[in-house]
């Protein structure tokens, strides 16, 4: 009993020492490095002006009421705009869009200074998304599964 206890104390300390000598860190130094998100990541949404047929399904299915149809005076067609204050990135709108006018981007690390800036009416909704970290020249890291380390972050070629 007593000897077992001592052995288990030693084992616990030895395990700690093992990781002290050979750490398995998973930290990504974010602003300098950025993870390339997986192929089907549901990031910020991009809107293709020309493909849209103004069916309004996206606004209908949006669970958070983030998507709304905007109609300009004198125009027949209403077009979707999004409010990123409300968006929960469930991706229902993209999945239901019958013409693939909406699509996911693999960008999610954006920040806004004012709440108004998070409002994307149709004209603004077509803008391209770029990761601010990557714009500042962050190293792009790919996530690789590894038996020894769990996740490894390797620079993308």
């Amino acid at each position: 009993m007593f000897r077992g206890k001592v052995r288990r104390h030693v084992e616990a300390i030895a395990t700690g020492l093992k990781y002290l000598v050979k750490p398995n860190r998973i930290t990504v130094y974010y602003p300098e490095e950025a993870i390339v998100l997986s192929e089907r990541y549901r990031g910020m949404i991009h809107y293709d002006w020309d493909k849209c047929i103004s069916c309004g399904l996206c606004a209908m299915i949006c669970p958070a009421d983030a998507m709304k149809m905007y109609r300009k005076k004198g125009e027949k067609k209403a077009r979707p705009g999004i409010n990123y204050q409300r968006c929960i990135f469930c991706g229902y709108c993209v999945d239901i869009c019958p013409t693939n006018a909406l699509s996911f981007t693999r960008v999610h690390d954006v920040a806004f200074e004012k709440l108004d800036e998070m409002l994307y009416p149709p004209e603004k909704f077509t803008s391209e998304w770029r990761s601010p970290a990557e714009e500042r020249g962050a190293r792009r890291l790919r996530v690789v599964f590894d038996e020894e380390r769990g996740l490894k972050h390797v620079p993308e070629q």
Partner: peptide, 17 residues
């Protein structure tokens, strides 16, 4: 929490979130 990241990564690659 660190090792949970492995499974979250798997789930992300499957579902997108």
């Amino acid at each position: 929490f660190g090792d949970r990241e492995v499974w979250i990564q798997l789930a992300e690659e499957l579902t997108g979130a």
